[in-house]
Structures are given as C-alpha cells and as structure tokens.
C-alpha cells in the first residue's frame, strides 16, 4: 500500500436493504459498514442467505440500499441520477461473476477493449489499452482467442483484466472461482491479489475459506450483519484512522 492515496475506494456506511414490506419484509442487510482501501482486497464470507451478494450488488450500484450510504471513490451513489449512476458503474467499477463474464462473439482482446470503447476512446486506442493490460497480466497469448476456446480459469483472468481496464480501480468479484478446480481457482485469486497489490481495491464474495485467505481482511456476514472481521495483518487502517 502506498502512502499518498489512502481514502477508501469503496465505503459503505450503515447500509440496510429490505425486500418487500410489512410482515413479509426480508431484511437482507441490516446495517453494514465496510470500506476498501486502494491496494486492499476484502473478502466477504457467510452462509447462503447471509446477504453477501446483496452487499456486492449495492457496492457496485447494481441495486440500491433501502437506507445508508455507499461511496465509490468518494461519490455518494444514493444521490446520483440513474444516468450518473450508470456512468459510475461503467467508469469506476469492474465486475467478475461466477460465469458468463465474457461476450462469446468477441475475442479476449475485444472483450477487454469493450469498456474502453464505452469510455469513448477510439477503437484503436481501446485495442492498444486492452493488449497492454493483457501483456501486463501475462495473458497476451489469449488476445485473439474466443471465450469458447479458453479454459474457465483463463476466462476469469481475462474478466479481471477487463474489470480493471482504464481508470477503473474497484473490482467486485462474486464467487469468481465457483466452477473452477482448486489449482485454476488459485491462479484466478493470485491474479486478483496481484491487481490489488498494484493499487486496485477489491471486494470478493466467496464461500471458500481457502480463497478468502488471499484477502487482507475477511468479514463474516450472518443474517445481514457483520458478525466478525479478521482485521488486517498489520492493522494498517486502524493506525491510519488514528492519524486522521
């Protein structure tokens, strides 16, 4: 972690999410506060139904909290218009899901270039950026392959490259190793870890302790609440909060 930029890239404060109302209301999240600093990977664990995935979709602006605040790079998502929110989703956040991450009709390089094209850069520039990203991640040999010709692990690594192309600094991953064998899953986690070490902020939802262990911090959810937190190894952020 580098000193100059230690404001959280993702900050959630007392976030609630309730589906339905009255007697049938389901409280998916009941007051969650969590943040992710640049360079940090935070894993979220918990039994099914604990609210892990809801947390991630709210963090990425794909779902709205019932109450509470979510800030992405300091921007409060709750106050944004739909149009502005769409822009944050597109420009600041990258997503990696369990599967179906890549567009089958596009090559790896085209998939990675797509967000850059949506950023409005020229197609040529987008392709250059995509190739540079693939080279940096050691995935350049996959550039011209279609998703169908890649293994599951290769597809997920390309999805990580796409999630963090251009100015994007927050990657949200929901069970990205779900369908992979243990060694391939580990390669995906190593890459995610490396991207965070290089300055990105990552939030990873997983039910596999072995994968969560690549994170700096692991938070446990149960019934929509954070019930425990491993803390970070060096306790860097508590030191930081004291200094602020």
């Amino acid at each position: 972690m580098t000193a100059p930029d230690l404001h959280p890239i993702l900050r959630m404060v007392n976030v609630h999410r309730t589906h339905g109302r009255g007697d049938t209301a389901v409280h998916a999240l009941r007051g969650i506060s969590v943040h992710v600093l640049p360079g940090e990977l935070v894993a979220v664990m918990g039994p099914s139904g604990s609210g892990k995935s809801t947390l991630l979709t709210i963090a990425g602006g794909l779902d709205a909290a019932t109450s509470g605040d979510t800030f992405v790079e300091g921007v409060p998502l709750e106050s944004l218009s739909r149009r502005e929110l769409a822009k944050v989703r597109r420009r600041s956040v990258g997503y990696v899901f369990q599967d179906l991450n890549l567009i089958p009709a596009l090559t790896a390089a085209e998939n990675v270039a797509l967000p850059r094209e949506l950023d409005g850069v020229s197609a040529r520039q987008a392709r250059r950026d995509a190739l540079a990203a693939l080279v940096e991640l050691g995935l350049d040999d996959l550039a011209d392959r279609f998703p169908d010709d890649m293994s599951g692990g290769q597809q997920q690594r390309v999805a990580i490259a796409r999630a963090l192309i251009g100015p994007r600094r927050l990657v949200l991953a929901d069970e990205p190793t779900g369908a992979l064998d243990s060694e391939t899953g580990e390669a995906v986690l190593r890459l995610l870890r490396a991207r965070c070490d290089a300055g990105a902020a990552g939030m990873l939802v997983t039910h596999e302790a072995r994968h969560a262990a690549w994170a700096d911090r692991v938070v446990f959810l149960r019934d929509g609440l954070i019930v425990d937190d491993t803390g970070s190894a060096a306790e860097a952020e508590s030191l930081l909060e004291g200094a602020r």
């Binding site: 302790a209 262990a213 692991v218 425990d228 491993t230 190894a233």
Partner: peptide, 20 residues
C-alpha cells in the same frame, strides 16, 4: 464457532501469504 473460525482464518491467511 465464530471466534474459532476467525482465528483459523487468520492462520489460513498467514499460510497463504507464505505461499504467495
């Protein structure tokens, strides 16, 4: 169980750092 899981996960994180 929760306290133990947190503790064991910290150990798992340490092993994973060594592995990295």
């Amino acid at each position: 169980t929760q306290a133990q899981r947190t503790q064991t996960l910290r150990a798992l994180q340490d092993y994973t750092r060594l592995k990295a």
